[in-house]
Design a protein around this nucleic acid. Structure first.
Lengths: 143, 143
DNA sequence: TTGCGTGCAAAGGTTTTGCATGGCA
DNA sequence: TGCCATGCAAAACCTTTGCACGCAA
């Protein structure tokens, strides 16, 4: 796996490295790289490889049944868990000590070894909560 | 949404209630209910509704690109997070106090509100770890 | 030169939809 | 009776594959 560094792989990798923390479906990637000389099947094959190699983390997004990916080959990122806001789609990085504590806690209480590469915590980020509150206020004000 | 209690919905619900903690793809459900007089499209439509209503939790399973669902309408289950073992696929229920603590910790450290309905922690359960160790031992013994 | 990875197009699956009909309230 | 939900089949999508060719090592 990943024996040749083809032009297509370089293009894909470069694209992903330039957009860390963003979520892409295979389709998104194919569309973004449409002019770069990489076919749709090459995207599929490479994404599948990269997921196996652990360079991509799979993330789901609320409404759709589609699977999204996030570039996750950063060394630092391997040490902590990620938070994905399902309002804005932004990715947040949990602090390492907090991550470690969380993993230890679960290990102790449930005898379960959480895998930080596969696991993503979903919820709502600060920015989105604030925005909602504002909306709420405005809505009230209107009435 | 969910205004009529049709025969098909009852069948689907009954099936899911009988198999809590198990993961099903839409296809699995359609297959299991093949003889029950519910069409594939009805399964699709109902599953989509139920997911929106929060009765089903979406879970990913390693290899495949398929999305699985877990019945999650139990009142107790709404109070805690779930752990999904990616070796055996079993679901584990995190204790409520631990869940609360985890959510509080993340809220405090990252200002992020974890949603226990959307979030699933993936990893390896005790049983699977033990099994692997055994294998390891056996492998060594062989050499 | 060797053989992996690519592109293309076809095949294989999965999910969604339109429309007429049946069944719940 | 009035509508919502279903079934069926077609359409729309998405993903995988076979094969010949090009390119990295």
């Amino acid at each position: 796996m990943q024996t040749y560094a083809t032009k297509q792989r370089k293009v894909l990798l470069a694209f992903l490295e330039e957009h860390p923390d963003e979520l892409f479906s295979v389709k998104d990637i194919a569309a973004a790289l449409a002019g770069e000389g990489i076919s749709q099947s090459a995207v599929y094959r490479n994404v599948a490889d990269m997921e196996e190699e652990g360079k991509l983390q799979r993330v789901t997004k609320d409404g759709t049944r589609t699977i999204f990916y996030r570039y996750a080959d950063d060394e630092e990122c391997k040490k902590h868990l990620h938070l994905s806001c399902f309002k804005c789609g932004r990715t947040y990085h949990m602090e390492e000590p907090v991550t470690d504590e969380l993993i230890r806690t679960v290990a102790k209480s449930s005898d379960f070894e959480v895998d930080s590469h596969t696991t993503v915590l979903y919820g709502v980020c600060r920015a989105c909560r604030t925005r909602e509150e504002d909306h709420g206020t405005k809505e009230k004000a209107k009435k």
